[in-house]
């Protein structure tokens, strides 16, 4: 039963909301601590599961967070939503899965945000996701749109597994291209050129996947207006991803990525030198 009212035109066309609504079709949907955070509780392939979404809210109390940015309220509200799921299952062996539907353009940039500690709000969300995963909740991120910088750290990056629609509108990056160009004193064209030979700089998903960060691309007929077949496929792949976790609570499988050789090498060296560096107490 889908009870949440669709509030604005912005929300209607928000890709994250479109996917959330379709995937939550047979789930109980409710608003989180603020209207920009939505939660659905139900089942996926017989397993208990919650979907979590950050969406635009044109009436957001904080004007710098009306377009679906992860702001002060969103960070704490994500933490609230996840803590509720975790405490509900605290005594239970069966930990419900948490699926982050990710379409976040950025963190909120503003004076109030800095003054009132947006870093701490985002830390609350990161903390909640990481604790849920480490407590045995399978956590999966489904990237359907933008997954940018601090917003992605707070909503999605702590997942065991990251899945992404195979679509140009899906983008992961540390900083928007225009801002990155200004700060590195390069043109956007130069950045694109660099990205061709330097995978961590690239804005395309294929390059991102070589960093070990995406488990699977999902081919859909339309990322903006998914068909019932698309939804069915995503549901199957989400269930597969849950199945293949087999109790893994870590995110270290990312290190197997083709372009993460240095990440592995550093860890090998640290491990090899660890014992010998033990202090004499």
């Amino acid at each position: 039963m889908n009870t949440a009212a669709i509030k604005t035109d912005t929300v209607k066309t928000h890709r994250g909301r479109v996917w959330f609504d379709l995937l939550a079709d047979n789930m109980m949907v409710h608003e989180g601590a603020v209207p920009s955070v939505m939660i659905a509780n139900g089942n996926l392939a017989e397993l208990p599961c919650s979907l979590i979404l950050v969406q635009p809210d044109k009436n957001n109390l904080y004007p710098r967070a009306i377009n679906g940015e992860v702001g002060l309220l969103e960070g704490w509200a994500l933490a609230d939503a996840i803590h509720n799921i975790v405490s509900k299952d605290a005594e239970s062996e069966q930990k419900s899965a948490i699926i982050a539907i990710v379409d976040v353009p950025s963190q909120a940039y503003g004076r109030r945000e800095e003054a009132l500690g947006i870093h701490q709000a985002l830390a609350a969300a990161v903390s909640a996701y990481a604790q849920a995963r480490q407590a045995g909740h399978p956590v999966i991120s489904l990237l359907v749109g933008k997954a940018m910088s601090g917003a992605f750290l707070a909503h999605g990056y702590q997942a065991n597994t990251i899945l992404a629609l195979n679509d140009d509108g899906v983008m992961v990056h540390a900083m928007g291209k225009a801002a990155a160009a200004r700060i590195t004193m390069r043109s956007e064209e130069e950045l694109d050129q660099l990205a061709k030979t330097i995978p961590p700089m690239a804005y395309d998903l294929k390059s991102f996947a070589t960093l070990g960060l995406i488990e699977k691309f999902i081919d859909v007929s339309s990322a903006d207006a998914p068909s019932s077949k698309d939804i069915e496929l995503v549901q199957i792949l989400l269930a597969d991803a849950l199945e293949s976790l087999k109790g893994d609570t870590q995110i270290t499988k990312r290190l197997q990525g083709e372009n993460r050789g240095a990440s592995r090498r550093v860890r090998e060296l640290l491990r090899a030198q660890w014992k010998k560096a033990e202090p004499n107490l």
């Binding site: 990481a130 702590q158 540390a174 990155a180 590195t184 961590p200 700089m201 995110i251 990440s263």
Partner: peptide, 15 residues
């Protein structure tokens, strides 16, 4: 200059 790998590492540090 190492954008997405910096972001990935930060997520790992946080975990």
């Amino acid at each position: 200059q190492e954008a997405n790998l910096g972001l990935a590492a930060i997520a790992e540090i946080q975990s």
